[in-house]
Design a binder for these strands. Sequence first.
DNA 1: TAGAAAACGTA
DNA 2: GTACGTTTTCTAG
Length: 979
Amino acid sequence: MKKGDHLFLVDGSAYIFRAFHALPPLTRKSDGTPIGAVSGFCNMLWKLLQDARNTDVGVTPTHFAVIFDYSSKTFRNDLYAEYKANRSEPPEDLRPQFGLIREATRAFNLPCIELDGYEADDLIATYAAQAEAAGGEVTIISSDKDLMQLVTEKVSMYDSMKDRQIGIDEVIEKFGVKPDKMIDLQALTGDSTDNIPGVPGIGPKTAAQLLETYGDLDTLLERAHEIKQNKRRENLIEFADQARLSRELVTLKVNTPVETTIDDFILEDQDGPKLVAFLKAMELNTLTRRVAEATGVEANEIDAADIPVENAGRARGPDLDSAVPESADSNAKADPEQQDAQNGDNTPQALAEKLAAEASGAKFDADSYVCIRDAAMLDEWISKAIEEGVVAFDTETDSLDANQANLVGFSLCHKAGHAAYIPLQHRDGEDDLLGEGGLVSGQLEFDTALEKLKALLEDASILIVGQNLKYDYLIMQRYGITIRSYDDTMLLSYVIDGGRGAHGMDALSERWLGHQPIAFKDIAGTGKKQITFDRIAIDVATGYAAEDADITLRLWQVLKPRLIADGLASVYERLERPLMAVLARMEGRGISVDRQILSRLSGEFAQKAAAYEEEIYDLAGEKFNVGSPKQLGEILFGKMELPGGKKTKSGQWATGAQALEDLAAEGHELPRKIVDWRQLTKLKSTYTDALPGYINTETKRVHTSYSLAATSTGRLSSSEPNLQNIPIRTVEGRRIRTAFVAEKGKTLISADYSQIELRVLAHVANIPQLTQAFADGIDIHAMTASEMFGVPVEGMPSDVRRSAKAINFGIIYGISAFGLANNLGISRSEASEYIKKYFERFPGIKDYMDETKATARAQGYVETIFGRRIHYPEIKSSNPQVRAFNERAAINAPIQGSAADIIRRAMVRMEPAMDAAKLSGQMLLQVHDELIFEVPENEVDATITCVKQVMENAAMPAIDMAVPLAVEAQAANNWDEAH
DNA sequence: TAGAAAACGTA
DNA sequence: GTACGTTTTCTAG
């Protein structure tokens, strides 16, 4: 550094706090990460750097650095233990921003300086002194009075938020003393925020006046006895030492052992792409645009930076430093009263309520909806969407099956009440042989519209809002369009109101907007007369489709703030939103199913079933519909007068498998045959007959549909076809699995969590014996039996182990004596004894169950270990049966739900992990605790290693489980052998 | 023809 | 005892 050079020193830590308190509390990324301070910081830096290049404006830095506090412990704590001891932890909302602001600094290509044991102020003092000694000038970007002692002819300060220079004159104006007296002034006045004692009764005015009179602190303290005011005199004498200590505390060190020299601070050019990538990740759209423009970067071509989110969360890094923590939510859980007192109507909760109240009274006006039929108008609507940055989007198609549906039109809504429908493929006239009538005129040309739509949907700076967006995502994916930034109102509702009712659009519209949408069947008819959407008149379609987009946007406006207010952003952001696209890709891939195998099995099952039917008629003495429980009941308990018949709640004879097994056990032949017949016909009708019908004609594969929001616990569900209930328990049933095959040259890998729910139980209930057993890898059911019945694990009778296994599962299900008795075929009192014994051996389980019930009652919901909430509105029901049921479900939910969250996390991480390992295999299916992959034969071993790694570490780093997660993986050519 | 009930497949 | 989805039968309209 030389004469004429100018060093800018940004007081990063102070800026963070100041910006945080100055900016609106709701400045957040779409994932809920608070970024108010980050935003302010980036804008400030950018402005400073821009000014630096406009040589005619202000001063021009040649050197630049951003300085941070390192930790809350510094050398000052050795001088005075109470120093800053009254500082409370920074607000939860602020914490993630410390790390992000350091990231920001690096993205700006600026040195990011901190030093253990020293405050940012000391580093600033040191560098300022060095620069001044070298003949340079210094501007300190801060308005902190603690730094004013550094101001000289060559060193000034700049308050970036008020755009104000602070030089010698400004210090005198503000404090009445020259900067070189600031130390003495602070020593006298103290500082309650930093816990610097000072001298009681002396404020800045008095201090300035005293210093004016006596010159400096030492002289003042020596001549304190001359002071006329009694109290002031006494205090100055009594607290003289305290004043000296205070002076030491406020004096900034100009000789901190810095590791970087000011010559390393030479201001370099911006790295445009790097900065744009970071700003995109922060979703600072305006600044992104500005920076892209100024640096000549095409923002659209740059992906948002991958800011480390998970790893930093745990690391005990410098000060409160950490990038986005796992839970960016805790602020919402902070004491609401305190927040109210501080922010009044600005709390997230208050804002969410206000928005909800507004939405519930809003009017819907079908006449305001627009039908877009020309390109210019579409352009106009798209630019409105770009302007808003948010747009609701909905596709209309001719089928519910996203893997074969054709796009008929789409709707947009950028502002409540302002929605449009864009018809593309409506048809009329008679069906020809292909079932295709003529295209209705007055529709935009398909490819033109699609191209425009692609630009909109793939623009990462525009948030696409959908309801059940996975469907639209799949449709657009098939047209070569990938939706980049999105929110899904169904998933928002699922996270916020899990267990409180349905999350379909109709239900949500009624719940939040007090509006009943046009029903699909009202415009398309029902049953045999139902028509597909492309046959619906365009004006009718417009009213329906535009309304859907309108509703979706309004729901988003209500639900997104609630997500933040309820502190559920991280659940949504980590377990729901990213999984949507993962599932869409899995569904799009489908799995190969061998038609021949199924058809052979169908024939076989049919033959055997027919044979059973003959025998059944013989035994019954007449022909009847074996599939009719009603007729069967009459034969068994009416005609044949078998004993022990029970009735179902609707008054019919119960002929369930268990009832028939009981009869069979008494030596009756017929019930056994019925059970076997049912098994065969079940396998045939549900699987071997039905599955081939699901083979997609184009892909030749079976594409299931996963629902992310169907279960209360967080599990997925699978339908059309349900591939989560493919038989495995019986030999016959297993054969169906052999029809699920890998394509040529590939292999299926099945990887499943071993005993994941019992492991979660061991973790959440904190049971030492269970934890130990899992750590040692011993048979968990045998261990339980051994504990309960005092039988050694070696050579344990199988029925003893079986009882223990049933109890272990019973615990997970919120055990009742009734249920256990049923399962084990023992008496209620015996079952009660077992449970009692179990609770004696594992008192932690009883505690867990009692606590969970109490929690559910007290707050109306329970939580998984990752914070997913499951509500039980009926937990306080006066009906004992209803209440007991809710209690059992509430006990089960954290266990089942945590396990579900774990595999969700694994799934979200799986694709990136496999990419990183250069593996080309693909994830096809999920069955609650199992993932199925299809991989090239030569990648099997590497894939298994990768998959196990991801699955076994899926809880980390959010949760450090007390129990290891174990995953077993196998490869084979079909699902039966792979499992 | 729509929907409930019963049965049964999975974790 | 928890969580699901599909099929068939049966009933009500």
